[in-house]
Structure formats: C-alpha cells, structure tokens
C-alpha cells in the first residue's frame, strides 16, 4: 500500500475560504453602491463626483485584492494553499477604512 494521496480536502477549506472572499466582495459592493448614492445625492457637484470616483476606486481595489487571493486559493495543490500574508490582509483592511473615511467626509 502506498500512502494515500489527498486529492481534495474533505472539509473543502480552500473552497469555503474562496466563498468567504466572494461574500466579502459582495458586502463591499453594497457599501460602494450606498457610497455612490450618497455622493451623487445632492446633484452632480465636482466634489460629489470626485468622492464617487474615490469610492469606486476603493471598491475596484478591494475586488483586485480578493481576486488575487481567490486565484492563489484555486491554484493550490494537495499540500494546501499558502497562508494569507499580513500585507494582503492589511490592504483589505485599509480599503475598508478608507471607505469609512470617505463616508465621514460625505456625511458632513
């Protein structure tokens, strides 16, 4: 008997993690749509358009981060995917914080 080859994690951990990233991009989409609505609410002032563009850029940044991580997870072999790097996690957090800062600027 050779040692068993693990073709697929029975707990589907990489898949679950991939879906968690997907859910998170969905949440960020909802937040970005609300941000765009707030930014363009009072007519199309230059400041509003600028804020809308910044929020859209942050949303795209978040999508790019999630996409990179999803590709790493999808490409992992039987030994499992590499762990999330702190830089990656920090980038995702900073996108979220920047969106909140935009929100504070828009609310005032």
């Amino acid at each position: 008997m050779t040692e068993p080859i693990r073709e697929r994690d029975p707990g589907l951990q990489p898949e679950r993690t991939r879906l968690a990233w997907r859910r998170t991009t969905l949440s960020s989409t909802v937040a970005a749509v609300l941000a765009a609505k707030t930014a363009l609410h009072g007519g199309r002032s230059p400041a509003g358009v600028l804020a809308c563009a910044v929020c859209c850029a942050l949303w795209m940044g978040f999508l790019a981060i999630a996409h990179r991580r999803i590709r790493v997870l999808a490409a992992s072999g039987p030994e499992g995917p590499p762990a999330l790097t702190p830089r990656h996690a920090t980038a995702a957090t900073l996108c979220t914080v920047a969106l909140a800062v935009c929100a504070v600027a828009l609310v005032f």
């Binding site: 679950r16 993690t17 968690a20 990233w21 859910r23 998170t24 949440s27 960020s28 909802v30 937040a31 609300l34 941000a35 609505k37 707030t38 762990a83 999330l84 996690a89 995702a92 957090t93 979220t96 969106l99 909140a100 929100a103 828009l106 609310v107």
Partner: peptide
C-alpha cells in the same frame, strides 16, 4: 482567514449602515 473576512464583512455592514 475566514474569521478575519467575517469581521471585515461586519465592518463593511456597519459602514453601509452609516451611509
């Protein structure tokens, strides 16, 4: 990592709630 993402979703939901 999934726990981290769950907290991040909570944060995004709070920000969405603020908007």
């Amino acid at each position: 990592e999934r726990t981290f993402l769950a907290w991040l979703r909570t944060a995004l939901a709070l920000i969405g709630g603020g908007f």
